[in-house]
Amino acid sequence: MTKNIKEQWRQFAAWVNGVENDEPVVTPEEKRAARPHLPGFVHRVLSEKNELRLYHAFSAVMCLVFTGTLLLTVLFLPTFGGAGNPTENEVMERYVEKGIEEVGATNLISNIILVYRGFDTFGESCVLFLAATCVMILLRKDEKNTTAYDLAERAEDAEIESEENTTVLRSVVRMLMPVILLFGVYVLLNGHLSPGGGFSGGAILGAGLILFENAFGLEKVRRFMSEHVYHIIKVAALYFYGFTMIYVFFTGANDLHSIIGTGIPGMIFSAGVIMPINVAVGLEVACTMYAFYAFFSKGEL
């Protein structure tokens, strides 16, 4: 009886996991030859299976020791959530109490990431730019990256997609698309007043573009977002950000004056350079997210 249940459970698990029936590419003999050579006495004492077990046990023990050390460190850390911890120091006081006066955004986090520590975020935008470029180099559809088999597979995919009946998806996307884009633009433009800002707004816009491409195909997206437009937006946003940061830091990094002025805190047109930088970062992030998707799925923009 128990055996029967066990068998059924095994079948169920196999069904959930999908049955493995791949043929091995590498023969076991080759694997045996390529194993790292442990010292001779281990070889003599242990069989191959046990040697693998020894490696696994060693990794587990190492991980446990590491975790245990970290857990011991927690004992000497300041209490969670206590007022007057070492993190609550003059840096936080300056950022919180002088932030609105000096920079002007009521969302104090965007003060920090875009003006006080602006170069940090500039470096992050460069990381995004580099990642998009690397993905483009690796996955772009050209004669070096794609084989005839890949092209045939893509053609088959495109044929199936053109025959697919996507009425439900298309009508839902027609209804949802304006709302998603509006929400993305709202999060983007209100980055200095409410939670959000360049990164989250840009990610929402990029996700909207991905949904649109899924429903209507690449040709429709190309009408407003071709590769040329993508390059222009990406480079222009990064240059704009860089020059704005240079301007802000040259005109007084400590006083943070700028010609735009801080305006009335809490209004939509306030906080000096934060809103333009947010828009630039948002465009960069939206383009990058869409480019990731396009290169991963089709190999072209």
Binding site: I109, V187, A203, A207, S297
Partner: peptide, 26 residues
């Protein structure tokens, strides 16, 4: 940390999953 919540929901659950799914397809 509501800023992190919005970013994580849009990026971690949205874009990351799409990228992983496309890789699984490939």
């Amino acid at each position: 940390a509501p800023d992190l919540a919005i970013t994580e929901a849009a990026v971690g659950a949205g874009v990351d999953t799409v990228l992983f799914l496309l890789t699984l397809k490939t």
